[in-house]
Amino acid sequence: MMEINTKFGKICIARVHLTRDEAELLINICGENCQIVKANCLEEVVFATILALKAFAQGRNKAKTVKGEILLRLAGVRQIREAINLVGAGEGENFIVTFGTENPCKLLTKILSKIGATEVTLNECDREIVKKSFERIAMTETL
Rank of each mutant, 00 (worst) to 15 (best):
M1K: 09
M2I: 15
M2C: 07
E3S: 14
E3I: 08
I4A: 06
T6I: 11
F8I: 09
K10T: 05
K10A: 11
K10G: 06
C12M: 09
C12W: 05
C12D: 12
A14Q: 02
R15A: 13
H17V: 12
H17A: 12
L18H: 06
R20Y: 12
E22C: 08
A23H: 08
A23K: 11
A23W: 02
A23S: 15
E24Y: 09
E24F: 07
L25K: 15
L26R: 10
L26M: 14
I27Q: 15
I27N: 10
I29V: 10
C30I: 03
G31L: 00
G31F: 01
E32H: 10
I36L: 03
V37C: 02
V37K: 02
N40Y: 13
L42P: 04
E43L: 03
E44A: 04
E44P: 07
A48E: 01
A48L: 03
T49N: 12
I50E: 15
L51H: 12
A52P: 08
A52C: 09
K54E: 14
A55P: 08
F56L: 08
F56N: 14
A57W: 03
G59A: 07
N61A: 15
N61C: 09
K62E: 08
K62D: 06
A63R: 05
A63Y: 01
K64H: 09
V66W: 01
K67Y: 04
E69W: 04
E69Q: 13
L71H: 12
R73S: 03
A75R: 03
G76Y: 01
Q79V: 14
I80D: 02
I80C: 06
I80S: 06
R81K: 15
A83S: 07
A83W: 00
N85I: 04
L86M: 15
V87I: 07
G88S: 05
A89D: 03
A89L: 04
E91N: 10
E91L: 08
E91P: 05
G92N: 10
N94G: 10
F95N: 05
V97L: 07
F99E: 02
T101Q: 02
T101P: 01
E102A: 11
E102P: 07
P104S: 06
C105Y: 00
C105P: 10
K106N: 12
L108P: 10
T109S: 14
T109D: 09
K110V: 00
I111G: 04
S113E: 15
K114W: 07
K114R: 14
K114T: 14
I115C: 09
T118A: 08
T118H: 11
T118L: 13
E119Y: 06
E119P: 10
V120H: 01
V120L: 10
E124L: 15
C125P: 11
C125L: 01
R127N: 06
R127D: 03
I129G: 00
V130Q: 03
K131Q: 07
K131W: 02
K132C: 04
S133Q: 13
F134W: 08
E135G: 00
E135L: 12
R136T: 01
R136W: 02
I137D: 00
M139N: 14
M139K: 15
E141G: 13
E141Y: 09
E141S: 13
T142N: 11
L143W: 06
